[in-house]
Amino acid sequence: MADSLPWIVAEAGTEARKHAPATLRNREPIADALADLLPASGTVLEIASGSGEHVAYLAGRYPALRWQPSDPDPAALASIAAWCEGLKNVAVPLELDAAAPVWPTAAADAIFCANMVHIAPWEAALGLIAGAGRLLAPGAPLILYGPFTRADVPTAPSNLAFDESLRSRDPRWGLRAVEAMDAVADQHGLARERLIEMPANNLMLVWRRG
């Protein structure tokens, strides 16, 4: 089931290198699913890299790719740098707010984002998709991982409880509907190619630039 509490960088202690407990549980399934989705070469921009544990692990699994982590939180940027120290295919993390109309990078061959859109205002999801529409070349993927709802599939009780806890903490947070994400993606020239069932009632959603 989905974690009962969101993981927030600012609440993860005082050490520079933060640890998100869910990372150890989900990094291998995520990396396995990405095998058929990522390009053979080029730059993967990770939005909301958080602790940096995902990008450090994925850089080892996919060494032919250049990984560009990012996050708006200074503590996250420090943690990313600590986890990725010495990894030659990981760039210096960018200070990047997904909701911003301008990002500090001009292009990417793929965009990956895990566990962000449900612990951020809806504007962050809108900005993420708009940014993908600006940066990605035709055929390049936007890949999201996390818990979502679907109109035609009953939501797992654990995800319903997770959604309730998120909204009680911040009414701007909550699980997003796949259909709502699709509608926004369509406005920015992105069409959903795949929906992959993942462990613990999570999904991997893949849109490609038309």
Rank of each mutant, 00 (worst) to 15 (best):
L37W: 06
A132D: 03
Q68A: 04
A120K: 08
V117A: 00
D163I: 08
A2Y: 09
N201C: 15
S51F: 12
D97N: 15
E46C: 03
M181L: 15
E193M: 05
M1C: 13
I30P: 00
M198W: 05
A99N: 04
A48P: 06
Q187R: 14
A108Y: 13
A161F: 04
V184E: 10
V184Q: 12
S70D: 02
D163H: 11
D109W: 05
A31S: 14
P63A: 11
R169M: 15
A130K: 00
M181R: 01
A75I: 06
A22S: 15
P63Y: 06
A40K: 10
N89F: 04
L58P: 02
Y62P: 02
D97Q: 10
V178P: 02
L38H: 02
A78P: 07
N26Y: 07
T14C: 04
L38N: 06
D73S: 13
I30K: 00
E15T: 11
A185W: 03
E53I: 08
V178C: 09
D71C: 03
F162K: 11
V55W: 04
K88Q: 13
R25V: 07
W103I: 05
N115W: 03
P74F: 07
R172A: 15
P6T: 10
E95A: 15
R25D: 09
F112G: 00
E197Q: 07
A106C: 11
D152H: 14
L37G: 01
H19D: 14
R169D: 04
Y57V: 02
H118T: 03
I196M: 00
A20F: 14
I30G: 00
P39Q: 07
E85G: 14
D3G: 13
W173L: 11
A82G: 07
L45H: 03
T14D: 15
Y62H: 12
R134W: 03
A33I: 02
L38W: 05
R169G: 13
R209N: 02
G60V: 07
G189N: 06
P72E: 03
D97M: 10
Y57S: 11
T155S: 07
D182N: 13
P157L: 06
G189C: 07
I30M: 01
L94N: 08
E46S: 06
P199D: 08
P39R: 05
A114R: 00
N89A: 06
S79A: 12
W67Q: 00
V102D: 15
L58R: 04
Y62F: 15
G146H: 07
A108I: 10
A140Y: 01
A12K: 09
E123H: 04
A177C: 08
F162V: 10
A107L: 07
V206G: 02
A2Q: 03
A22I: 08
G13V: 11
L24S: 10
A106Y: 08
A100V: 04
D73V: 12
P154S: 07
G52P: 09
